[in-house]
Computed example of a mutant assay.
Amino acid sequence: MTQRHFPGSKLATRSNDDDDDEDLFEYFYDEPGSLPGTLSIDEDACPSFIVLIDYNESHANRVTNLTADACTPYLTSDSVSWLDIQGLGSEDILLGLGRIVGLHPLLLEDVVNVPQRPKVEDYSDQLLIIAQMVMPKPTEDGFWIEQVSFVLGKSYLLTFQEEPERDCFEPVRARIRGHKGKIRQAGADYLAYTLLDAIIDGFFPVLEDYGERIEALEDEVILNPNHQTLEKIYQVRRELLALRRSIWPQRSAINALIRDGSNLISSDVRIYLRDCYDHTIQVLDMVETYRELASGLMDVYLSSVSNKMNEVMKVLTIMSTVFIPITFIAGVYGMNFQYMPELTWRWGYFVCWGVMIAIAASLCFFFWRRGWFEDSRFAKHD
């Protein structure tokens, strides 16, 4: 499995093992001396298979497990052909598809050698768009992050995913099947916008989960801060930083699609991309807000721990202050000198106890008047 996941207390990159503590923000780089266009396929990558959705205003056909050669007629048809390549583990399929579609070797290298930084590159008759897709884990905290690459042609769109059957594109597929909206009347550029918009909208459920986690951490930090709380705060901060590193370059990539004039994207679709760009800004604002809240939680945690220690020191100080004069009196009358006038008093023992109790009560009353008991551990229990 090549998909990066962010589970529980360990954050891993490109690994199956939750206990692997690899670089959280790893990006792909070529080994020194390697030839340009060299494909580096991860040994754990899922096998590739091609899913085709060919549609126009009158029909929509879905074909699974296509071979690379069988895709040729669809690339030159008048309808829109969406070739979804799920899995990046089959080099022969990827090279064959690259040969048939005419993918530049550097383009195919960026698609296969994951993860890449989100970006947009124009290859004249093809447009490469690399994005990062996140999905919440259904049964535990955290999220999956996966690279999705788009290759936009005049009448076709290729999407390359690391993992099969786990993405946020199902609503788009349903709209194509159900002939909803204007997707069946539009071209491949509108399909690319729709999928990009689905990727950006996929950040919102993940961020909603982090909003709830931060709210729960706020209560925990105030009421019962402990070492596990600190670990949770640190984990949330790292995961939010990973989200920021995913969405920040995607903002620049979408902005490049709007700003740079490509003949593969119509002016109408650029207007829709503006809305996608606005959603990206909203996601980035939420990420920054939650990062600030998480950083504030760290400060609150340290303050809570310090206050907790101050409460303990206050209790010890009160107890010490109360027992110091009592210890002094007990020490004086424990010296056993022969000529001590109080030793011969009949009521000396009881008077000594009375004086000690009076001193302790007076000190406690004094501390109570000064408000020392209001925030102490004992006052909270009362």
Rank of each mutant, 00 (worst) to 15 (best):
H5T: 08
H5G: 15
H5Y: 05
F6E: 10
F6W: 09
G8C: 07
S9V: 06
L11Q: 05
T13H: 09
N16E: 13
D17E: 09
D18W: 06
D19P: 03
D23I: 15
Y27R: 11
Y29C: 06
S34V: 15
P36K: 01
T38F: 06
L39A: 08
D44Q: 08
I50Q: 02
I53R: 13
N56P: 03
N56G: 14
T64Y: 03
T64M: 08
C71E: 05
T72W: 08
P73Y: 01
L75T: 00
S77W: 06
V80H: 07
V80E: 05
L88Q: 11
I93G: 10
I93Y: 01
I93N: 00
L94Y: 03
G96S: 13
G96V: 15
P105Y: 07
D110Q: 03
V111G: 09
V111S: 12
P115V: 11
Q116F: 05
P118N: 05
E121Y: 07
S124G: 07
A131H: 04
M135H: 13
T139H: 06
G142Y: 02
W144Y: 13
V148G: 05
L157E: 03
F160I: 06
E163T: 14
E165L: 12
E165V: 13
D167Q: 03
E170S: 14
G181P: 09
I183T: 04
Q185N: 15
A188K: 04
Y190K: 03
L195M: 12
D197E: 10
D201P: 04
E212L: 07
R213F: 01
E215L: 03
E215D: 12
H227Q: 02
H227I: 06
Q235K: 03
Q235I: 01
V236M: 07
L241N: 10
A242K: 04
I247R: 02
W248N: 08
Q250F: 15
Q250G: 15
R251A: 15
S252K: 15
A253E: 07
I258A: 03
R259F: 11
D260Q: 15
D260F: 09
S262D: 15
S262L: 09
N263K: 13
L264T: 04
S267I: 10
D268E: 12
D268Y: 05
R274Y: 03
T280G: 13
I281W: 02
V283Q: 08
V287Q: 02
S295I: 00
M298H: 00
V300M: 08
S304L: 00
M309N: 00
V312Y: 00
K314A: 09
V315F: 02
T317S: 15
I318D: 11
S320P: 01
V322L: 14
F323D: 03
G334E: 10
F337K: 02
Q338C: 15
Q338F: 14
Y339V: 14
M340K: 01
W347P: 02
W347N: 12
Y349E: 01
F350Y: 04
V351C: 08
W353A: 13
W353S: 06
M356C: 09
F367A: 13
W368Q: 14
R370H: 11
G371N: 11
F373A: 02
F378L: 11
H381S: 09
H381V: 04
